[in-house]
């Protein structure tokens, strides 16, 4: 009786383990390959996103001559109408295009007057080291919900910023001379309306000197 009890117990446990396995055994090589395939590569993703989605969507940016006066007259309404934000974040982004006259150039920014008759700096193109999530979030092409791992989502931002530092900023630094006309498309992140709107700090995605 005692032995039969043990046998039944072992049979029940074995059946449960067969029905609900606790683990699977796989060869080390296959496991390594599976892990490599499952690991998210933010650089490769950013490269593909840059070429296939971002640069083909630049025409969706709001014109500076529309956005800047809107911010000037009613920042809250402009935010409601033109901005994007991720999740419950209080910061928001603008996707903006336009052209302007270069008013000043420094190591970190190229200052532009971007609307008709403006004499003050309205746009500051960022040309130093980039840390913002403006490009990732500003175009609305990427959704945080598609990336359950927030580290992956943050890594995309970092990879996009590196691409801009390598491909966009060197050319802009070369061509930006005081008095020159520059056309641009870029993204701006607003964390603090008192400091980030006047001038609007834009990370350029594409620039051209006229």
């Amino acid at each position: 009786m005692r032995w039969s009890g043990w046998l039944i117990a072992v049979a029940v446990v074995a059946s449960l383990c067969w029905l609900f396995p606790l683990f699977h055994i796989v060869p080390l090589e296959r496991a390594a390959k599976e892990k490599a395939a499952a690991t998210f590569d933010p650089k490769a993703f950013a490269e593909k996103f840059w070429g296939e989605q971002l640069l083909t969507s630049l025409d969706k940016a709001v014109k500076a001559e529309v956005l800047l006066p809107a911010i000037q007259s009613n920042a809250a309404e402009a935010k409601r109408k033109f901005s994007r934000s991720v999740g419950v974040s209080e910061s928001y982004t603008y996707f903006i295009s336009g052209k302007g006259r270069v008013m000043a150039v420094s190591d970190d920014e190229v200052s532009l007057a971007a609307t008709e008759g403006a004499t003050n700096v309205e746009i500051s193109l960022q040309v130093g080291l980039l840390f913002s999530n403006a490009v990732r979030d500003g175009t609305g092409l990427l959704s945080v919900n598609d990336y359950p791992n927030s580290q992956d989502f943050n890594a995309i931002s970092e990879a996009l910023n590196r691409i801009i530092e390598e491909r966009v900023l060197p050319k802009l630094r070369k061509t930006a001379k005081v008095g020159a006309m520059i056309s641009f498309v870029g993204c701006a992140e607003v964390n603090d309306e008192f400091t980030d709107l006047k001038p609007l700090k834009v990370i350029p995605l594409k620039t051209e000197a006229k």
Binding site: F20, P21, L22, F23, I25, V26, P27, L28
Partner: peptide, 11 residues
């Protein structure tokens, strides 16, 4: 043993 144990959530 040249293998890896891949755990299920239950495991």
């Amino acid at each position: 043993a040249g293998v890896q144990m891949q755990f299920t959530p239950l495991g």
